[in-house]
Design a protein around this nucleic acid. Sequence first.
RNA 1: GCGAGAGUGGCGGAAUUGGCAGACGCGCUAGACUUAGGAUCUAGUGGGCAACCGUGGGGGUUCAACUCCCCCCUCUCGCACCA
Length: 859
Amino acid sequence: MIKLTPMEKKYSPKDIEQKWQRNWEGLFVSKEDPNKKKYYCLEMFPYPSGRIHMGHVRNYVIGDVIARYKIMNGYSVIHPIGWDAFGMPAENAAIEKGIHPAKWTYENIASMKAQIKKLGLSYDWSREIATCDEDYYKWNQWLFLKMYEKGIAYKKKSFVNWCPSCETVLANEQVDDGKCWRCDSIVKQKELEQWFFKITDYAEELLSYTDKLTGWPENVLMMQRNWIGKSTGAEIDFKIAGTDEKITVFTTRQDTIFGATFMSIAAEHPMVKVLIKGKNTEKDVMKFVEKVMQEDKLTRTGEGTEKEGIFTGAYAINPFTKKEIPIWIGNFVLMEYGTGSVMAVPCHDARDFAFAKKYNLPLQLVIQNPEKTLSVDTMKDAYVDDGFLVNSGEFNNLSSLEAKEKIADELEKNGIGKRCINYRLRDWGISRQRYWGTPIPMLYCNQCGIVPVPEKDLPVRLPKDVAFTGKGGSPLLDSKDFLNVKCPKCKGDARRETDTMDTFVDSSWYFLRYTSPKYNDKPFDFEKAGYWMPVDQYIGGIEHAVLHLLYSRFFTKVVRDLGLIKIDEPFTNLLTQGMVCKETLRCPEHGWLFSEDVKDDKCRLCEKGVEKGRVEKMSKSKKNVIDPDKLIDTYGADTVRLFSLFAAPPEKDLEWSDQGVDGAWRFLNRVWSLVVKYSSEIKDAKAKIEVAKLNDNEKALYRKTHQTIKKVTEDIERDFHFNTAIAAMMELVNEILGSGEKERVKAEVLKAALETLIILLSPFAPHICDELWLLLENKGSVINIAWPQYNANAIKAEEMLIVIQINGKVRGRVNLPAGTAEEDIKKTALADTKTKEWISGKDIKKIIVVQNKLVNIVV
RNA sequence: GCGAGAGUGGCGGAAUUGGCAGACGCGCUAGACUUAGGAUCUAGUGGGCAACCGUGGGGGUUCAACUCCCCCCUCUCGCACCA
């Protein structure tokens, strides 16, 4: 322990923050304590880009207040941090600057760690992990092998989203508006052999548990539900006229089957070739198919894309009407969804309606609108709502709902179809043609085929001697040492898998590894994970609403089914913090400007007037960024923390304001000088307060102290509304300043007020609080002090301000003892001189009294 | 188009169960201290001279509406040929 001497004169964060950060070393190491309730507080771990940004700061500070608050409330708290350390930027740095990805990554980790440490966060650094450590990625490989054994990891040839710039595949959810989520290149379709995780096996559970995640924001759950995209319907077989072949369609509207007047199938559908063979349409159809398949997915499924199709020349037979219906190929039909073929019901599907109108295909009304009778000749749009059935034989007059069931029964009875559930969710493709990731532990043997690497041979290490050219696929292909191995089964020549895993694999279970970061036998210790999991509070950006959070939920369930843990869901409560935003500045000549390049609304370079742009998310390209490191150097971590927490509630966007930071700085200075001013006076004051002996001024301060405890506690408990909690502490400071000036206050009352303030403020601004705590000759860190309880009697005011309303408008105010009876309040209100003026000459119709609050006289 | 959320002073934001709209902070105004002030302290600060008017707009319920109900507008986010 370092010798601590308090500094009294000026608030100098630079000195006290370093001192306390050194003093806190080891203070936040967590241990499983069976006698305490546990609390797992987790912020999404960062990618080690090299520098932290304000988004990180906000994220970690929110988590830190929660962790510190829970510690002070007697919980056994785990609050770990680590590094999401695999990924492309490291490899790009290797290509551009010739630095090895490992060197680049570990150097970045070191510099970011130093920056993060300056914030004074309560992390248990002994649990730090980096996913690029072989101690970590070994367990990615181990989990992969277990998943392979269970058939959850499998390989298939498929069309994949290919980013030509990253030279790698992307999962569907990593494609954003047809572009790569990382580099914005247009994504192309490519056929490749890829490793997949069978997340679709868990689609139903992932969906149904969204109803149980009551601690998650509704919008995130909704995004996940949309992503999983469950739809209930039926598969129906349509015979192809004049053959023994059939085409199966998926529909959610089997009640409209009598209205199916044609069929649309995907260009990729395997039946296309069969249907057109030998027909005179063959050439034209193939031309069309090729054209459609060349189009990338973005334009093909884009909003403005015209629906196009071509008649194959073949007919299917509607199994209910027995009529022959033409089979068309539609550019809008997707092979990946359902069966790649659609029964087209133009009267009751907007898309089919447009298609039928364009190509002059027949319409058949089968659902009648009970509100307003429809007729085929006058319909301008499809009627897509439910109704009752017409032109549907034995099913006429049934409601859509009833008909869905009856027709499904009929399909199953006749063996021409079955009830069916479809999901939009696809399996998760995890292969990446990159170096800086976890090698997939598989071998290709000339004799035995695909062979998993035996568990004892893990980890499959990344080779060091690799050239990074940025060309020609994975650098691992060039490493002979890596590539060539002996088959563990037949000892013959084999070749390693060169694909590495998507980095989302790393982040799908890191929260489990934190519970036993050095464990050697398994990915994590069953007992320890059992103690700490699930994460009680997870905090991170909304951008991970689908990707990371869905994968983590999936992994948790897989790991549960492997018997490694007992819980079903990883994160009990989720807080999605808002973005950190700032005003943008633009010079007509020099483009985006940093705020320091602007003086008096003019560009420093050319003196031209600067346009103030929208408030937008901080981004380097728009130059509306604030460097947290510089800010900490100027104001200290406590000010930065306080402002980040005060400017907005955590779930909302935070607008950065330099003046706002000054405000936080001033507040801390006021706290500092207040405590310094009274420190000698209150040091030796007794702890006990005899409430009965206090004068009014003292009682008011005593009451405010306890009201503040109540307010701050409740605001933290109520969805972490730190902004109002801080406002309450500012009020207390104003009250202390006020009471001190008015008249002398007994030392013990002042002491209680100031010490309470320090304790309540300590999770928010821990350095200054520990320093002031020391100044008052207390021992150790405030983190060891129990969170205060408020005295329910103390917060009750003896006198209440009663508002007098006349016809609902405030006309006067009067002080009355708390708990004054309704009758007495009425009397007092009516006796009030101002009231008399307002009601003179009018009839009193009614008087409403709300105890301790108001009286409303209706005239 | 569908779904979710939001709209309150010059600005960020409060108002937790229908009960004083604007807490707290920023900014602004005046004053004090000062060689100086972009430091600090004190006072004031929704609009209007006033009656009064004010929570995106219009209706409604109520003694009382930022809060509840109906209609509309705007913005943000997510999804979007999903059969």
